[in-house]
Amino acid sequence: MLDNDPEKKKLMRDVVIDQIYNAATTDRNIVFISADFGAQSLDKFRNELPDQFIHAGISEQNMVDLSSGLAISGKQVFLYAMAPFITARCYEQIKCSLSAMNLPVTLIGVGVGLGYDHSTLTHFTPEDIACMRALNGIEILSPSDQKSAEVIAANAVTNPAFRYLRLERNAHDQIYNDEFINCLDTGFYEISRGDRVAIVSYGALLHKVIEARDDLKKAGLEVGVIDLYRVKRINVHKLFEHLSSYKSLLTVEEHILDGGFGGAILEALADNGLQMKVRRLGLSDGFTVVNGDRDQLHKFYGVDTGDIISAVMELEKN
């Protein structure tokens, strides 16, 4: 049984920063830079390793340019901010000062997708996968619980590379135990195997996908669920090996459909000459902004558990 005691649920950001902190205590070349964004674990980092913490000010452009000079000088740099501000806000700097030189800097964005529900559009990232995945050489990782966040962070610390780590704002139920470590190479985890329909998702919506799977099971339908947490650098060969037994595929994302997660999978299918019926759930172009909590927003944008179930039923008919 997984332990889902809310008291024990740590925020992803705390889990990730603790991993960086542990490494930084023995490696003084690790530098953590925040654009005025905090975390409980960061307070410890700042207090105990003040020489390895930099407050960049609310200046994301300088934060990224600065990190390039530090990285070329041999520092292992982690940049930390709310997700919209460490992606689109300083995209030019990421492109020219990091991507162009393929520097081993990790961008950590917190509150991806609709995580800052009541804060609405300026705090949403309905476009971050699309824009970040267009960057040359980047790896994009989107954990769905604290265990996957911990394993991904530990790996990022040990193997420096140009990465974007997408963290959820809130604590979510635990999905994984130690077994998650076994999927670091493949970049995805097969949570369950089904008959005709497979659902591929990531992050917060993976939890709704699992809920939908459980409901469908009660109705006698076994659906496959894959957590494609490595959104960029998809291991196409292995992924399609897992998908080959299914008749159709449903992708679920908290992102605009144009250039997003489902789009990436469609591209991979087309490039490999594979044919499969695919349906994508996500935000459609022209979406409007409304008030509501994250669950209400999921309903409004058509990506909630009920929408996932309906989409599977549709696919089952074929």
Partner: peptide
């Protein structure tokens, strides 16, 4: 371009050099 020996960064888009230089200076 960074590939050229003796060039310390990349240029062509304005406004990056001072930040990058600050990174070099802070590391030093």
């Amino acid at each position: 371009d960074f590939r050229i020996p003796g060039i310390e960064g990349i240029s062509g888009s304005l406004g990056h050099g001072v930040g990058m230089g600050a990174g070099y200076a802070l590391a030093a």
